[in-house]
């Protein structure tokens, strides 16, 4: 059972959202362990280093509006990582942005599977686990 559960990686600079989202994901029975990164750089470092070992499915919830490296810049760097082809990773943008340009821009990245609005709900997590979001 445990091996079928998906790992969640949360990338957001806002600690409150990280707390809430970690809690929501943790309370869901279908989700596996949760990793939280408060900056895009940390997440990139992890993904670059850990791709050899990890083989389970993974879902990344990515904030757009972050200091230093924002969500879109993260995506540009992420696309060049070797991990992209080795692991099944689905990236979802998770934002409070109402700017339609942000949605349009996310669609331009092939690695992005969808766009979610904050705050994440338990229903969202179930859908993500079922691969339907």
């Amino acid at each position: 059972m445990n091996s079928e559960k998906k790992q969640f990686i949360l990338i957001d600079d806002d600690p409150t959202f990280n707390f809430i989202h970690q809690k929501i994901v943790g309370l869901s029975s279908c989700a596996g362990d949760t990793l939280v990164f408060s900056s895009a750089a940390e997440a990139l470092n992890y993904l670059e280093a850990e791709h050899e070992n990890a083989d389970s499915e993974c879902i990344i919830l990515l904030d757009i509006n972050m200091p230093v490296i924002n969500g879109f810049e993260f995506l540009q760097k992420y696309e060049k990582l070797p991990v992209v082809n080795k692991r099944q990773i689905n990236i979802y943008m998770l934002s409070s942005s109402l700017n339609p340009d942000d949605r349009a821009k996310s669609k331009q990245f092939a690695v992005v599977s969808g766009f979610l609005n904050k705050p994440l709900s338990a229903t969202d997590v179930c859908k993500l686990c079922a691969g339907a979001a």
Binding site: D14, T16, F17, I20, H21, K23, I24, L27, N65, S95, S96, S97, L98, N99, K118, P119, L120, S121
Partner: peptide, 19 residues
């Protein structure tokens, strides 16, 4: 960016009330 910044804390509170 204003609406984004205004909404972030509001959405945090909504998320916390949900939990």
């Amino acid at each position: 960016s204003l609406t984004h910044d205004l909404r972030s804390p509001i959405l945090s509170v909504i998320g916390l009330t949900d939990i």
